[in-house]
Design a protein around this nucleic acid. Sequence first.
DNA 1: TGACATTGAGCGTTGAAACACGCATCATCA
DNA 2: TGATGATGCGTGTTTCAACGCTCAATGTCA
Lengths: 155, 155
Amino acid sequence: MTVNFQPERRQTMPRGSLREEATLRIWRTASALQDEVDALLREHGISSAQYNVLRILRGAGLTGLCRNDIRDRLVARMPDVTRLLDRLETMEFVRRERGTEDRRLVTTYLTPAGERVLMRLDAPVAALHERQFRHLKDHQVRTLIDLLSLAGREA
Amino acid sequence: MTVNFQPERRQTMPRGSLREEATLRIWRTASALQDEVDALLREHGISSAQYNVLRILRGAGLTGLCRNDIRDRLVARMPDVTRLLDRLETMEFVRRERGTEDRRLVTTYLTPAGERVLMRLDAPVAALHERQFRHLKDHQVRTLIDLLSLAGREA
DNA sequence: TGACATTGAGCGTTGAAACACGCATCATCA
DNA sequence: TGATGATGCGTGTTTCAACGCTCAATGTCA
């Protein structure tokens, strides 16, 4: 929960590049945010990757999604989505079913139990995010999002 | 290396919060940047956590650092720094020595071989960072850093 | 000086991630 | 329709992270 987020102890930067500083700042911030969310999720017995999958499945609704669709929508790159789903299936938060038309596809659906977990988490997670960004005004958050969208972009 | 970074396939957001979108954007960007750096580092046989440690030790110079100092300076929270150092020691990139005054402390130093690895990586890493942020002007990068510094801050 | 708390480091175990591989299914085309 | 390549999933294995515990060394105070 508590994160090592030394205000201004600067990371050693051989070439003192501005863009290197930005990279480190992104990583530090991402990690700090992640640690707090992880702590919250762990109280409910799931990891952030699992939480991410559950939310993706909620977004998909009754249609469900096959493994690769889930993989492509994950926030962080993640090989081996199969086992991630295995664990969620063991916890009975998701249900898998092999397709009938294309028998290669295995569609995954959110179960009622999975929906309930998400429901219980909605408020606390939203509150946490609000708290984490409470020092930024709306327009600053928007600017932040826009700037981040430019970073790492291929085109 | 190639990252699943769908331009505008929006993450499912139950409550459509702006701050939630910011969080996801930070994580996506961090992950995308990380994946590329990891790919580069792996060509040299080290992980990003290991690279981070080596740079911290280079910054510390001849003084070296004890385990907890290293832990506190890492970009991402990381318990079990011991084993991380174990692997670096096996690769002979660092050297450890138990303190004489306070015999609880084990100071870690960068070896010449470790310095060489860093030297070989300096240019490519810097170039990669420049490329990743090439769509942002200097003042935008500065703004990004400042905004991120406000996020997750306790005070 | 002796009992006790604190700090630093290492280790054992469990669980998950990374990677490559194999198998089943489907699409394509001769 | 039969061969070939592509696609979607799952699995085996190895490596690494996470967590808690133990041990050694130091500081503290009666």
